[in-house]
Nucleic acid binder design. Sequence first.
DNA 1: GCCTACATGTAGACTGTCTACATGAGGAAC
DNA 2: GTTCCTCATGTAGACAGTCTACATGTAGGC
Lengths: 113, 113
Amino acid sequence: MNPDALRGHMDALLLSVLERGPLHGYAIIEALQERSGGVLNVPTGTVYPALRRLERIGHLDSEWATVGGRKRRTYRLTESGRKQLEGERSAWREFAGVIGSVLRADVRPSSSG
Amino acid sequence: MNPDALRGHMDALLLSVLERGPLHGYAIIEALQERSGGVLNVPTGTVYPALRRLERIGHLDSEWATVGGRKRRTYRLTESGRKQLEGERSAWREFAGVIGSVLRADVRPSSSG
DNA sequence: GCCTACATGTAGACTGTCTACATGAGGAAC
DNA sequence: GTTCCTCATGTAGACAGTCTACATGTAGGC
């Protein structure tokens, strides 16, 4: 998976995974991997800063918890995040539609076949 | 259209437009706009450097022409570019499938709602 | 002691897109 | 004859999100 391809779609992915319920960063990475059939291996250096950014702009909030002696920062969607996710979904549909239609090889030979 | 979203998909778009036949930069921009129903307004500062990059790595080649007193640089796909386009198409299908499946709200209520 | 899995985080490199600007021809308006 | 729009190409530098690589620390197996 070309890293650049993710640009501008990471927020949608993160928000979408958190829609089902709160998760901590590490679990988000695993969820992304699982939901994509192993294709999406997003490094921690991408996910953690992105989560903090989303929290900073109000789409997420977080709280610390200790589970089995390990500290976790658990994120959940805010109301703003939920709205953002809706927007991201429709933006994705438009985007995928546009790129898809341009890429579609609708080269119709006009005379022979 | 969020600019970042295009990242990593520009090459596919450009190559795809040139699949039908050689075009110069300005015409490529118009073709992109037309094929996307006006949604894709890619600025010249994106397209011209991208075309030069694609030529540099061998996916395109170009030649100058003068039409109606105006100079045009006309680009066309090389064999390598054609192969690249195939790769871009299957990469896009995988990408769109993965993002789509993660974004799909398959929140199935397991007990109450 | 050493290794792996779990868990979070930062610094700095990388790179492609964008904004803004520069250049210049053709043609219509007036 | 200069002003304005369309056509046409190009560059410099800003911008920003992802990536690599590193740093830190706990738990548990052996």
